[in-house]
């Protein structure tokens, strides 16, 4: 399975993501600059974390309107897999590829800590090889991770099983509604999540629990 990471001005977790993808897939990862208008022939497109455009206007808002995003939307519509982590998740909601919005943390503080995630849905390629209901450690680092969706949208994503991950055991770090940490689109080929699984994939990180998600994606896409 081939993957690509899109680079935006202000991305800063792109190298962590590339390293994790390369280490776990054993294959080189393509990089694509945001001004491009077409994507290489890859199976997984990743939007990394960071502070694209300095979080001006709203986090991820300007990056979501970059030239490359037309190709990302097209790829998603064709069923190719797209994953956004942290700022990448914010971009995917701003681009309309995922429901809801990510607002300022309820505490108003930037949070950089470890949380516990519950795998809520194993019906997508991203999560199929993961254990449903399992709770795992994962780092978060964000200021705008407070997931919000109106009542109607929330009901729809809950009924459809689009909530992929929840903050578990009282570790919700940002006030997200229903403890939502990650959601997919209706078709299940687009995933966004605030926590950083790419930062818990080697011994030096202090754990390997972030690997399962990538291993699942590589096994099932």
């Amino acid at each position: 399975m081939k993957s690509a990471v899109i680079l935006f001005p202000g991305s800063n977790r792109d190298r962590d993501m590339i390293k994790a993808l390369e280490m776990i897939s054993g294959k080189p990862v393509a990089t694509v600059w945001h001004t491009e208008t077409s994507l290489p022939d890859v199976d997984l497109i990743v939007l990394p974390g960071g502070f694209s455009y300095g979080d001006y206007l709203r986090s991820g808002a300007i990056a979501a309107r970059s030239p490359i995003m037309g190709a990302v939307k097209e790829a998603a519509a064709q069923g190719r897999h797209v994953m956004g982590v942290c700022n990448g998740f914010q971009m995917l909601t701003e681009a309309g590829l995922l429901p809801g919005a990510l607002m300022r943390n309820a505490s108003l503080h930037f949070v950089c800590k470890e949380v516990k995630l519950l795998t809520a849905n194993t019906n997508t390629a991203f999560t199929r090889s993961m254990e449903k209901g399992a709770v795992w450690r994962c780092p978060v680092a964000h200021h705008d991770g407070n997931y919000f969706a109106d009542a109607e949208t929330l009901k729809k994503i809950e009924d459809n099983g689009q909530v992929a991950f929840r903050y578990a055991e009282g570790t919700n770090p940002n006030g997200s509604i229903n403890d939502i940490a990650g959601v997919t689109n209706e078709a299940g080929n687009v995933l966004g999540m605030m926590p950083h699984p790419e930062n818990l994939v080697e011994d030096l990180h202090g754990g390997l629990q972030g690997r399962a998600l990538f291993e699942s994606a590589f096994a099932n896409i």
Partner: peptide, 9 residues
């Protein structure tokens, strides 16, 4: 609609 506001919120 396209940029200045996020009409979700």
């Amino acid at each position: 609609e396209k940029l200045l506001a996020n009409t979700v919120i």
